[in-house]
């Protein structure tokens, strides 16, 4: 078993409010690990702390055996953690293909002078980046819209584009924040299958946040449940489904298999 991400006792405060309390999780290569919990439970915060956007007040994050707590977001990204955002963050004014090509920036080996003169590693790198970007777009069924403006895509396609972009980073670990929010049931099912194929074909691990319970239960190997920033359960989908503590945390919301609609963009 290849341990990728190892988070230990991570706590995050927002001006006195504790958004995350002693959060721990391990993700290995080939895993799809779910992270669920009611609105405001601290799921996104856990991702933000992992990717360096928020500094945790205690605890540590190890990635591939290296301590990455305190690293800057771009450094963490280059070390192999790619993510998507709950409220889709595309480069809206750029074309679809450019969105994906940007993620390859850190793999560019040419200097700006080579770029200006169009010599050296420039052409080779550009060709490689471009064909790789096309490959990823094809993989996500976005090949046809490659030269369209990103903001013109329908919601579901934007989510897919965000994932293509994350994959262009050649990550070892993929963190998906509500990837199927806004997708219709067919798209969701297809995406689930896609995720499983991806895991089987690439040497990566996946961390997954979503409110769509049937989707999460279907694709995840193990699930961590958060409530008010506190980890309340850890187990297989079937164990989580029947965990009384989880059910009570979700009390008042529509748990158990059906999609929980949530009001947040």
């Amino acid at each position: 078993m290849d341990l990728l991400l190892d988070i230990n006792g991570l706590s995050v405060f927002f001006g006195g409010v504790q958004a995350l309390t002693k959060f721990s999780i391990q993700i290995s290569r080939g895993d799809i690990i779910g992270l669920i919990g009611p609105n405001g439970a601290g799921k996104t915060t856990a991702f933000n702390a992992t990717t360096g956007r928020i500094r945790p007040s205690e605890g540590s994050v190890f990635f591939c055996g290296q301590k990455i707590t305190g690293w800057s977001p771009p450094r963490i990204a280059r070390s192999g953690i790619a993510r998507t955002f709950q409220n889709i963050k595309l480069y809206e004014d750029l074309s679809v293909i450019e969105n994906v090509m940007i993620a390859a920036h850190s793999s560019v080996s040419y200097s700006f002078i080579e770029a200006i003169l169009g010599v050296g590693r420039y052409s080779r790198d550009e060709t490689r980046i471009k064909s790789r970007a096309y490959e990823l777009l094809e993989l996500m069924n976005l090949g046809e819209v490659a030269s369209e403006q990103a903001s013109s895509l329908p919601y579901g396609s934007q989510r897919k584009l965000e994932i293509a972009r994350a994959l262009a980073l050649d990550p070892k670990l993929l963190l998906l924040d509500e990837p199927v929010a806004g997708m219709n049931p067919t798209e969701t099912r297809e995406f689930g299958e896609f995720l499983l194929t991806l895991r089987d074909n690439l040497p990566i691990g996946v961390g997954l946040i979503d409110h769509d319970m049937s989707f999460v239960m279907e694709v995840c190997d193990m699930i961590r449940v958060l409530d008010h920033g506190i980890p309340i359960a850890w187990g297989t989908p079937s164990a989580i489904r029947n965990n009384p503590e989880v059910i009570s945390a979700y009390l008042g919301t529509d748990f158990n298999g059906t999609t929980v609609k949530h009001a947040k963009n």
Binding site: R53, H105, I116
Partner: peptide, 28 residues
């Protein structure tokens, strides 16, 4: 030439969304 290279794309990425640019490994 610069704008059409990866450097130019990185600049545009920072313009469009700095957070997303950093999450893609670009040192803003």
């Amino acid at each position: 030439r610069l704008v059409n290279s990866s450097y130019g794309r990185a600049m545009k990425a920072v313009r469009e969304d700095e957070t997303a640019a950093e999450a893609m490994g670009i040192n803003a």
